Simulated assay, not measured.
Amino acid sequence: MPDIVVIGDVGGCAAQLTRAVAPLVDDPDTVIIQVGDLVDRGPDSRGVLDLVRARQEIAPERWIQLVGNHEAQYLGGEPFWPTRLDEDAATLLRTWWLKEWLRVAAAVRTREGEELLICHAGMTVATWRALGEPVTAATAADLLNTRPEELLWDSRGGPLWAEAASDLYGSWLDAPVVVPFGQVHGHSTVVSFARRAWLCPGRIRQRTTVDWAARHTFTRIRTARFIGVDPKHGRFGTDHWAPLTLPDATLLA
């Protein structure tokens, strides 16, 4: 079984993505899942897109590209970022979407048997219910990959927009339901990595551990783990982060 490596939000920081990917691309037993938000904010969105295009052309089975809210504004969602991509870059994103090189979600099973849904901002209870309350991560990913527009373009808690503390974790903590599977998400986080400070209520903090060096958070909600992988690169990128590695994992969807 391959190692599955999950890369958080890139945000136009091509140099940081290049360094993260370099030791992985020659390993045929590694599959990379990138959680979206390739573009905007950082200095080289086009460089990021060029790197991803090269990986998709060389080994498409080993690079799974998910869509984030920053890509969504070129695919049917409302524009919100003040600086627009050039038309060639925007056309490239639309082409990937049409060819289904951009997906909404993936699902994996770890070697310990834990099922994890992976999407940009995570699946809230409201989204889970709107999809018919799927009981496995694979089913949830398949349903999201049908591209339900009323959910994708919803900036009030949809799978490309949910805020980790309030929308995602809060909804599962409040709902009187069994949490059916764990999740891995980017988009937002419950801490400030730069300041080593918490950005969440105490009930989430007491359930969370932080890998400050890798810039990952791990929040336990009943029997399920929620893993945040957005490194918060900002405008210039950080060198103090790492992708999330799931060794000997199985790709389910």
Rank of each mutant, 00 (worst) to 15 (best):
37 D>W: 01
97 W>M: 11
161 W>T: 02
66 L>H: 01
114 E>H: 06
173 L>I: 13
79 P>G: 01
53 R>D: 12
115 E>S: 11
41 R>C: 11
17 L>K: 09
92 L>S: 09
71 E>I: 02
169 Y>W: 13
34 Q>Y: 02
130 A>N: 10
120 H>G: 03
23 P>F: 07
207 R>L: 14
82 P>G: 05
117 L>D: 03
165 A>C: 14
6 V>Y: 07
170 G>A: 06
104 V>E: 01
227 I>A: 04
23 P>N: 12
174 D>S: 14
108 V>P: 09
30 T>S: 10
140 A>M: 09
53 R>Q: 13
182 G>D: 08
25 V>R: 13
17 L>Y: 13
175 A>V: 09
171 S>R: 02
65 Q>H: 00
118 I>Q: 04
64 I>A: 00
196 R>T: 12
34 Q>R: 05
124 T>A: 05
143 L>C: 06
69 N>C: 02
89 A>Y: 09
148 P>M: 01
248 D>H: 13
194 A>Y: 00
127 T>C: 15
46 R>N: 01
3 D>N: 15
69 N>H: 01
231 P>M: 05
13 C>K: 12
181 F>T: 07
31 V>I: 15
147 R>M: 11
94 R>G: 00
33 I>R: 03
192 S>E: 07
67 V>N: 00
123 M>C: 11
61 E>V: 00
210 V>S: 10
243 P>E: 08
208 T>N: 05
177 V>G: 03
57 E>W: 00
176 P>Y: 07
184 V>E: 06
156 R>A: 13
49 L>Y: 04
23 P>K: 11
7 I>V: 15
124 T>F: 04
230 D>Q: 03
38 L>H: 11
166 S>T: 15
129 R>H: 07
91 T>N: 15
213 A>F: 07
173 L>V: 09
139 T>A: 15
206 Q>S: 14
154 D>Y: 10
238 T>P: 11
184 V>N: 04
142 D>H: 11
20 A>Q: 11
183 Q>K: 06
5 V>P: 04
46 R>A: 12
167 D>V: 04
7 I>L: 12
66 L>A: 00
35 V>N: 07
84 R>I: 09
252 L>T: 03
106 A>E: 08
67 V>L: 06
86 D>M: 14
20 A>D: 14
51 L>H: 01
229 V>A: 05
59 A>D: 08
215 R>M: 09
33 I>H: 02
138 A>Y: 02
12 G>F: 12
135 V>L: 14
148 P>R: 01
234 G>V: 10
200 C>H: 08
51 L>N: 01
167 D>K: 02
52 V>F: 01
50 D>I: 10
30 T>A: 13
179 V>L: 05
242 A>H: 12
36 G>D: 03
2 P>Q: 04
118 I>W: 03
26 D>M: 13
155 S>K: 15
69 N>A: 04
31 V>K: 03
161 W>K: 02
40 D>I: 04
29 D>S: 14
230 D>W: 02
172 W>Y: 09
216 H>R: 08
111 R>E: 15
77 G>R: 03
68 G>L: 04
171 S>V: 05
197 A>Y: 01
199 L>W: 07
147 R>V: 08
138 A>K: 11
95 T>D: 14
111 R>I: 14
29 D>M: 01
83 T>Q: 14
21 V>I: 15
